[in-house]
Amino acid sequence: MATEQQLVVQTTGAIAAEGLAERKKVRLRRHHELQNGTAYLFLTPYLAVFVLFVVVPLVFGIYVSLHNWSETTGNGGFIWFRNYTTLILGRGYYGSEFWTSMWNTIFFVIISVPLLWLIPTALAYGVYRAPLKPLWRFLFFYPSVFSATAFGSAWSLLLATNGGSVNNLFGLNIQWLTGMPQAWISIDLATIWATMGFSFIIMYAAITQVPRPTLEAAEMDGAGAYERFRLIILPLLRRASVVVVVLNTIASFNLFAQDQIMTNGGPGTATTTISMTIYQQAFDSFNAGGATAAAFLLAIVLGVIAFFQFRISRKAV
């Protein structure tokens, strides 16, 4: 508080002595100093809802994960980290399912995240260069309006092995949903179809921000569309790409509904994801403790991956 008062005294003195220009300088100087009060005032609404609706359930979740907790019979006692070690060591049904589904999920993330960046970015650049922009924007964004239940069902029937429209239309006999790796391809396809709109809009918004003069100058120098994209636009999309990649990583790790509807985790358990396992453990087997522990382990995996994504994105300037 003392420093604050000193600052006020100093500034009032300064204002009296100097003119308008100096006053501006002082304002700026103050501006560039710490603004704890103002900042937390701005943050108050967010922090309030954050504490109420994220921190409270989260702390409770951690509490549950350290207990032998069942939805039906309640708290069965504090067991330290046994829920975590059971999962990590792959003990029991859910222990082995945890690892199977975790690897499945990681595999899905590895194939889907690059595509979920590449395809929307390419399409966004295409739309940026094409006429009829509103039409394309609508076409590439509208699948986002469908719920996972709706589009999952639609895709599962389009991709039916016998009598499905895709096989019928192209005269194929591919086991889209019951063969491997087709099952993953199908889920990936449906996921890209349905969730691409978000990434497309963000990448498109970012591309429209690239200064036109720079692009035109490059074109004058004879740079082709691809070169212009790679050399000028792409570096300027870094921040938007971070948003798209990080959020798609998180979304892909949480893959659930379309997978459940399209393959129900099959064939066998080949497309069972970690969210599906956690859900089963929590609500079908009434093991809230183990399920919450699995969810936090997933959060840790996600955190590590996101950390590296941030690091790489910072280095790749």
Binding site: Q35, N36, L47, V54, S275, I300
Partner: peptide, 25 residues
């Protein structure tokens, strides 16, 4: 402001928590 990095990290980290962990709580 003091703690800005901490707040930002907490905000972004909360993205990592799967909703399924929060459903019952």
């Amino acid at each position: 402001f003091r703690g800005s990095k901490v707040v930002f990290t907490i905000v972004v980290s909360s993205l990592m928590v799967p909703f399924i962990a929060l459903l019952l709580p």
